[in-house]
Design a binder for these strands. Structure first.
Lengths: 216, 216
DNA sequence: ATAAAAAATAACTCTCAGTCATTAACTGAC
DNA sequence: GTCAGTTAATGACTGAGAGTTATTTTTTAT
């Protein structure tokens, strides 16, 4: 009798129920305005119960980040399976990223905000989730590196840079774009994109082309 | 008798006194752990007084951001005065930025964190400071554009891209690097930089070189 | 010297994260 | 079935800290 396993599964279910409640509320009212009380209500638990599943509010929010990272990781792995030139692999990965930003602001915000918590302010946050996130981030980076290496091999990528460094730069560019999306509407940047009739995916493509066509 | 002017000046003084108290405390204990009570104490005011000068905690933090942006703006203007090739101007601007990040984490954090406040969660925040920050950010961007245009003119920059778009990309890269610094120590990225014996300024230089040497 | 205005205060309210003592539900042994 | 033990859930409680306001102190003008 798989007693413990079932227990585990049910626990996971409940954790997810809470997480979903949190996400839907955050989408409606924003991060800071969402209270544990409300999350509990929507998940049909009492407040106290939430703390049986997540150490604190911060952990709960980090779990959202983790979910987003897991999604990206899955997608990246699938992309890497495809039999495409390396340059195209990287491009698809970046588009996947941008799509996520575009259609799910909550995930994006979670990805940026909860994970900073510098030394001084870590304290309570559940170490495990934090670790998982770091691990996932690293793996995402390495999947980009893999794609770059493939691209260098197959000739679709010409660069003077080491793939790892290039991956880092691409990561920075990606992060910069995310930040740009979060900072919101009022922006010279949007105006520029608009007057050139471009969007972020276009700009990302431009960027990658520049990076990938460096006469060695 | 310049009565009102003196009043204004004194008011500004007191605002600064509060701001400095806030910055020093944040440096010691981090953003979220710093309370209005403590800030008041250090500034030698009572808590209530703080609210005569800043609408709320969020405004106070945004004022820190504003100060950082003002500093950068001044620096950028000075750089632009110099009689240097455009490519060098941009490079110096970026180095200035990276220096700031490096030596003043508080400013950096403020720059990233307080300014997101998306629609849902703006509410009380002092509109004026917000506006000022947006204005400053836009001007920073335009100063980069100016430098790029100079570079295209003097031939130090070869690019297929429009200067405005290129400025945007450089801005993204910069933001990505800031984010990287904030996210803190535990990082594959640091390891990569380490094993290649590089730091962020090096990587930025690489990045700019790539961008500036695109055969047209 | 005094009325008016400006600046500062500290006691207060209110919201919300996180805790804990208690209760309910389930599980298995007999 | 029922009782002991374990796991899950509850909601009343505490404490911290943001923001408010009625009151007092200080400054300025006449």
């Amino acid at each position: 009798m798989g007693k413990t396993e079932r227990k585990e599964r049910e626990r996971k279910r409940r954790k997810d129920r809470i997480l979903n409640a949190a996400i839907s509320l955050i989408e409606e009212k924003g991060f800071e305005k969402t209270t544990m009380e409300e999350i509990a209500e929507r998940a049909e638990f009492s407040k106290g119960t939430l703390y049986l599943y997540y150490n604190d509010k911060s952990s709960l929010f980090q779990a959202i980040k983790k979910r987003a990272l897991k999604y990206l990781h899955d997608q990246f792995l699938q992309i890497l399976q495809k039999d495409l030139p390396g340059a195209k692999l990287v491009h698809e990965m970046m588009i996947t990223f941008l799509d996520l930003i575009h259609e799910n602001a909550t995930f994006t915000k979670a990805m940026m905000l909860y994970g900073k918590k510098s030394e001084q302010e870590v304290e309570a946050t559940d170490g495990t989730i934090q670790e998982d996130c770091i691990q996932l981030e690293n793996e995402l980076l390495m999947l980009i590196v893999r794609s770059l290496q493939i691209g260098v091999q197959d000739g679709s990528i010409n660069t003077k840079l080491d793939p790892k460094l290039l991956a880092l730069q691409i990561g920075f560019q990606m992060n910069g774009m995310i930040q740009f999306c979060l900072t919101g509407s009022n922006k010279k940047g949007l105006q520029i994109l608009d007057e050139k009739n471009m969007d972020l995916p276009d700009l990302m493509e431009q960027f990658l082309q520049t990076q990938f066509s460096q006469a060695g």
